[in-house]
């Protein structure tokens, strides 16, 4: 056998699954069914247990009337929706501005030009300060500190000041994310670009930044999601967003249901957003949900 030459000739005709393959497929289908039933069962047990704990607690009746009053909820919904629209606008603007400024800062900080040294130092100081300051503190300092300067050209509206404060903080975050992405571009890519005769700036613009953006997209999308909820912090300055509107209703009605409604409204935006981001990441192959990518079993 060992020293005979064996030759297999061309097409051996169409393929139909062998009994072995069919048996395995049936076994796998059975195991999938079993996994589904197990998942369903364990979920039911958990949900029932959680509901029981809450509903049988001594204060449940009172809690329900002061946090889950349906009449109050329907009554305050239009006002809260109006506030939420403000949150959405603030969110979109802060996302766009923080991403653009952050990218600019990151490029500046990774540049090598000696002329730009003072700007680089300034950018480094800015990131150090605003990455380290609690967002709430920045909001209070900007919201109450800037108006006290009495500059006539400076808007004193809480919405503008609050948006500015969020941008200040989040630009520092996005700048650091972009900078780590730029640092992660392999040096060979720079060598290749410079070897082709591209200038430093052309290399940055055409080779480094596109790869850095791709590397950091998951982290940036994560930042976009947390910006959505942090837009609610402008309420601290008195801007009537969903949270502030809820607060007003709570004081008027002595009932906490508006807070719950506001929470649900935020989740209605952030949960689909998170899912969409996950699905997008998965499709691009960045998914963190496959623990053993590249290994079938």
């Amino acid at each position: 056998m060992r020293h005979t030459v064996r030759v297999t000739h061309g097409d051996q005709g169409g393929w139909t699954p062998s009994p072995v393959a069919r048996e395995r497929a049936a076994f796998r289908a059975g195991r999938r069914r079993r996994s589904f039933l197990l998942a369903l069962g364990s979920t039911l047990v958990l949900v029932v247990a959680a509901v029981l704990v809450v509903v049988t607690s001594p204060g449940w009746e009172r809690t329900r009337s002061s946090f889950f009053d349906l009449d109050v909820a329907t009554e305050v919904l239009p006002g809260l929706l109006e506030g939420l629209w403000l949150n959405v606008r603030v969110w979109v603007i802060t996302v766009v501005v923080a991403l653009l400024l952050g990218l600019g800062l990151a490029i500046l900080r990774t540049s090598a030009s000696p002329v730009l040294f003072p700007l680089r130092a300034l950018a480094a100081a800015y990131v150090d300060v605003f990455r380290g300051l609690p967002l709430l503190l920045v909001l209070l300092l900007v919201g109450f500190g800037l108006p006290s300067l009495r500059l006539s050209w400076l808007p004193i509206d809480a919405v503008y000041l609050g948006t500015g404060a969020i941008v200040l903080t989040y630009t520092a975050y996005t700048a650091e994310i972009f900078r780590s992405g730029i640092g992660a571009v392999h040096p060979a890519q720079l060598t290749a670009a410079r070897a082709l005769g591209l200038t430093r700036w052309q290399t940055t613009r055409r080779v480094v930044v596109p790869q850095a953006v791709r590397n950091t997209t998951p982290a940036l999308l994560n930042t976009v999601v947390s910006l959505q909820k942090d837009s609610g912090l402008i309420s601290i300055l008195g801007a009537v967003d969903a949270i502030r509107a809820a607060q007003i209703e709570v004081t008027g009605a002595y009932n906490f249901t508006p807070y719950v409604v506001a929470g649900v409204l935020f989740l209605l935006i952030s949960i689909p957003l998170t899912r969409a981001v996950d699905a997008y990441s998965e499709r691009r192959g960045w998914g963190a949900t496959r623990p053993a990518a590249g290994v079938a079993r």
Partner: peptide, 24 residues
């Protein structure tokens, strides 16, 4: 066993390891 096979048998010392019941 790093890839899923569509059909056929891979046997190690006579034991079919492509069987999904086998500990990969």
């Amino acid at each position: 066993l790093l890839e899923d096979v569509e059909d056929g048998v891979i046997a190690l010392r006579g034991v079919d390891v492509t069987d999904p019941r086998v500990d990969a």
